[in-house]
Design a protein around this nucleic acid. Structure first.
Lengths: 229, 229
DNA sequence: AAATACTTGTGATAAAATTCACAACTAATT
DNA sequence: AATTAGTTGTGAATTTTATCACAAGTATTT
């Protein structure tokens, strides 16, 4: 973790939709209450159960949001910059309800929660943007969890691979940012089952795989598997 | 479905936290753009895939929020009045992303979405209350879905029974508002598995059951089952 | 009251995925 | 370069839950 310190939100090129609606003065207030931090792979941005007084804006990098369940850790979602994380966790109470960990090197801004709240109270457009983004998030998570709960392992794995390809890396070929075990925490399966399911996809010629390097060869078929469950 | 028509939000005794922060004039605008409707058991308040231009405020009754998954319908949550439903579904697009159905007779208010948005833009406190409630919802759903995904059927069933008892009916004894099959859609199990799991709980003396009439006899033990998964 | 539709219980069988155990591999540290 | 820690692959046995098939019960409609 490296803390370069103060940032300038006015000139920031990676501005959120919400920040776009702020005026010059509001952006200055934001800058004054915003700290930039860099993280290495696998470093935690914040942790479930710990006191927290900041909203986190991920400027660069890929981050996993995860939470300890009754039996094991679970990856709730994998998100790509730029975006806010931890709005619900902060507004829902003073203690984090989940953790966030960098899957790649990441740079983030910590925004003092009170300032964030003030912006919501003072600027309706800002509040509206925040609401839109939380709502979108909620809808996405409904979809994700219905898929996770109803599909069986091959469908869930196909979903995950297609998601990583389409939403995160925007390429058919990428390096898995997760171990087999982490991938299991994401798609609700054991490490062994993930290994077997991946091997099966490789054997059937739907993917190419060498360690964590993945190449989606037959996306049409993967989508079919995803749909069939 | 019976439509008594116009309502008066100013004098409404079942006011939401969000509506509490509105001033007299805003409440009048709300009243003018708000229609009260009554529903019988099992009637749909709104349906996934249909165009929608209203936020729904449930004044009385119990409602299920459900969504068609890849294999079957799934009950995302069961909610009790008073509360808003459908904020994400409306703000996330013009088409409902899920359905809502009355589990008991229910009375609701339909609020024109544009009016709701205007209130968000104009009244920061209102926006803040809305954000808080959506965030709380999101956190609850994370908990729910982690439990659903990690626990096995007895744990999931115990969760559901305790939830209905503690959150919905506030009594150890209640009439299940769901068929075995619906309960299966809620806890991710088949009708047959639900039947068997319930019979098991009864045989073990943890619950009393006659048809849909349930009495939680040994809550401590049910909580243990819930925790163990 | 009879007929129909829907709901519930139960057994036998089958499928999916986990668990456990061990070997091989890779990366990180000394 | 050697050692250690962490990751991955694989087989066999086991567990959990779904599926199928059928009987019995309860509501609802005619």
């Amino acid at each position: 973790m490296y803390m370069p310190g103060k940032v300038n939100c006015e000139s920031c090129l990676i501005k959120s939709c919400a920040a776009e609606v702020l005026n010059k003065q509001e952006l200055q207030v934001l800058s004054a209450n915003c700290a930039g931090v860099s993280y290495k792979k696998n470093e935690k941005l914040f942790q479930q159960g710990f006191l927290c007084s900041n909203i986190v804006y991920v400027k660069t990098g890929i981050v996993k949001i995860h939470k300890t369940g009754p039996l094991k850790d679970q990856i709730l979602k994998i998100v790509k910059s730029p975006r806010f994380i931890g709005i619900p966790t902060v507004l829902g109470g003073k203690v984090n309800h989940y953790s966030a960990t960098a899957l790649t090197p990441a740079t983030v801004c910590f925004i003092v929660t009170d300032i964030f709240k003030t912006l919501i109270l003072r600027n309706g457009k800002f509040a509206n943007e925040v609401i839109n983004s939380i709502c979108q998030d909620e809808l996405n998570f409904y979809d994700l969890s219905i898929n996770q709960m109803q599909k069986q392992i091959h469908g869930r794995l196909a979903d995950a691979l297609l998601f990583l390809s389409d939403e995160i890396f925007e390429s058919d070929s990428f390096e898995l940012p997760l171990s087999r075990s982490d991938l299991g925490d994401y798609i609700q399966a054991t490490r062994e089952s993930v290994t077997r399911a991946l091997s099966r996809l490789k054997a059937d010629g739907l993917i190419d795989m060498q360690g964590r390097q993945i190449n989606l060869v037959d996306k049409k078929m993967l989508e079919k598997i995803s749909k069939l469950g």
